[in-house]
Deep mutational scan, measured.
Amino acid sequence: TIEDAIKKLLKLAQKGQPYTFGDFTVTSEEEAKKLAKWLKKQL
């Protein structure tokens, strides 16, 4: 689910690992949080 993807994304971001989700490449926890907010709006 999208919720699971968001959780995984935040965990990876906390470890400092870049994470690619579709067109987004997230390289920081701050970016992960922005992406998570955006994804929730898409639901």
Rank of each mutant, 00 (worst) to 15 (best):
T1M: 07
T1S: 07
T1Q: 06
T1F: 12
T1E: 06
T1P: 08
T1N: 07
T1V: 09
T1G: 07
T1L: 13
T1W: 14
I2P: 01
I2F: 09
I2E: 01
I2A: 03
I2Q: 02
I2G: 01
I2M: 04
I2L: 08
I2N: 01
E3W: 14
E3G: 07
E3R: 12
E3V: 13
E3Y: 14
E3D: 07
D4L: 10
D4Y: 04
D4N: 09
D4S: 08
D4Q: 09
D4T: 06
D4W: 12
D4E: 11
D4M: 09
A5G: 02
A5V: 15
A5M: 15
A5W: 15
A5K: 08
A5Q: 07
A5N: 02
A5T: 11
A5I: 15
I6H: 00
I6F: 08
I6D: 00
I6T: 00
I6L: 11
I6M: 04
K7S: 05
K7Y: 04
K7T: 05
K7E: 09
K7I: 09
K7G: 03
K7A: 06
K7F: 05
K7Q: 07
K7V: 07
K8V: 14
K8A: 12
K8G: 04
K8F: 10
K8H: 11
K8R: 05
K8S: 05
K8D: 04
K8M: 13
K8L: 13
K8C: 15
K8I: 12
L9K: 00
L9I: 06
L9W: 03
L9F: 10
L9R: 00
L9A: 01
L9Y: 03
L10N: 01
L10Y: 04
L10T: 02
L10M: 10
L10K: 02
L10C: 02
L10P: 00
L10R: 02
L10A: 03
K11I: 11
K11T: 09
K11H: 12
K11G: 10
K11F: 09
K11D: 13
K11N: 10
K11R: 08
K11P: 01
K11L: 13
K11V: 12
K11S: 10
K11Y: 12
L12H: 05
L12C: 15
L12K: 04
L12W: 14
L12T: 04
L12E: 06
L12I: 07
L12Q: 05
L12G: 03
L12N: 07
L12M: 09
A13K: 03
A13M: 09
A13H: 03
A13L: 12
A13S: 05
A13Y: 06
A13C: 13
A13N: 02
A13P: 02
A13R: 03
A13V: 13
Q14E: 11
Q14R: 03
Q14P: 04
Q14C: 15
Q14V: 10
Q14G: 11
Q14N: 10
Q14L: 13
Q14I: 13
Q14Y: 11
Q14D: 07
K15H: 08
K15L: 13
K15I: 10
K15T: 12
G16K: 03
G16H: 07
G16Q: 04
G16V: 11
G16N: 06
G16D: 13
G16T: 06
G16W: 12
G16Y: 14
Q17V: 15
Q17H: 11
Q17S: 10
Q17I: 15
Q17W: 15
Q17G: 14
Q17C: 15
Q17P: 15
P18N: 08
P18K: 09
P18L: 11
P18E: 11
P18D: 13
P18Y: 11
P18C: 15
P18R: 06
P18A: 06
P18V: 11
Y19V: 14
Y19I: 15
Y19D: 06
Y19N: 08
Y19H: 10
Y19G: 13
Y19A: 13
Y19E: 09
Y19L: 14
T20E: 12
T20K: 04
T20W: 15
T20V: 11
T20P: 14
T20R: 03
T20F: 14
T20H: 08
T20Y: 06
T20L: 14
T20I: 12
T20Q: 11
F21S: 03
F21P: 04
F21L: 03
F21H: 02
F21G: 02
F21Q: 02
F21V: 07
F21D: 09
G22D: 08
G22M: 13
G22K: 02
G22Q: 08
G22C: 15
G22V: 11
G22A: 06
G22S: 03
G22N: 13
G22E: 11
G22F: 14
G22P: 05
D23E: 11
D23L: 13
D23P: 10
D23M: 11
D23I: 15
D23S: 10
D23R: 02
D23N: 07
D23G: 10
D23K: 05
D23Q: 08
F24V: 04
F24R: 00
F24G: 01
F24N: 01
F24K: 00
F24Q: 01
F24E: 01
F24C: 14
F24P: 04
T25D: 05
T25C: 06
T25Q: 04
T25I: 14
T25N: 06
T25Y: 12
T25S: 04
T25H: 12
T25F: 13
T25G: 06
V26A: 03
V26I: 13
V26D: 01
V26L: 04
V26M: 03
V26C: 15
V26R: 01
V26Q: 01
V26W: 05
T27G: 04
T27S: 06
T27M: 06
T27R: 05
T27N: 07
T27D: 04
T27E: 05
T27I: 12
S28P: 05
S28T: 12
S28E: 03
S28Y: 06
S28K: 02
S28A: 04
S28F: 14
S28M: 12
S28C: 11
S28R: 01
S28H: 01
S28I: 13
E29L: 14
E29N: 04
E29H: 10
E29S: 04
E29V: 14
E30F: 10
E30S: 11
E30I: 07
E30H: 07
E30V: 09
E30C: 08
E31Y: 11
E31F: 13
E31V: 15
E31A: 08
E31R: 02
E31I: 14
E31H: 07
E31W: 15
A32V: 07
A32E: 01
A32R: 03
A32W: 14
A32G: 03
A32D: 01
A32N: 00
A32P: 01
A32H: 03
A32M: 12
K33V: 13
K33P: 00
K33M: 11
K33F: 08
K33R: 12
K33H: 10
K33E: 08
K33L: 13
K33S: 07
K33W: 10
K33Y: 10
K33C: 15
K33A: 06
K34L: 10
K34A: 09
K34Q: 10
K34W: 12
K34S: 06
K34D: 04
K34G: 03
K34P: 00
K34E: 09
K34Y: 07
K34V: 04
L35A: 01
L35T: 00
L35V: 02
L35E: 00
L35Y: 01
L35S: 00
A36I: 15
A36S: 05
A36L: 15
A36E: 06
A36N: 02
A36Q: 04
A36F: 15
A36Y: 13
K37I: 12
K37A: 11
K37V: 08
K37G: 06
K37P: 00
K37L: 10
K37Y: 08
K37F: 07
K37R: 08
K37W: 05
K37E: 14
K37T: 09
K37M: 06
K37D: 13
K37C: 08
W38M: 04
W38K: 03
W38E: 03
W38F: 06
W38Q: 03
W38S: 03
W38I: 04
L39D: 00
L39W: 04
L39A: 01
L39F: 03
L39N: 00
L39C: 15
L39G: 00
L39S: 00
L39K: 00
L39M: 03
K40P: 02
K40M: 14
K40A: 14
K40E: 13
K40H: 14
K40G: 07
K40N: 07
K40V: 12
K41N: 09
K41M: 12
K41P: 01
K41A: 11
K41G: 06
K41E: 11
K41W: 12
K41V: 05
Q42K: 06
Q42A: 09
Q42T: 08
Q42P: 01
Q42C: 15
Q42D: 01
Q42E: 04
Q42G: 05
Q42W: 10
Q42H: 05
Q42I: 12
L43G: 02
L43E: 05
L43D: 02
L43F: 05
L43Q: 06
L43P: 01
L43H: 06
L43K: 03
L43I: 10
L43Y: 07
L43R: 02
L43M: 11
L43S: 03
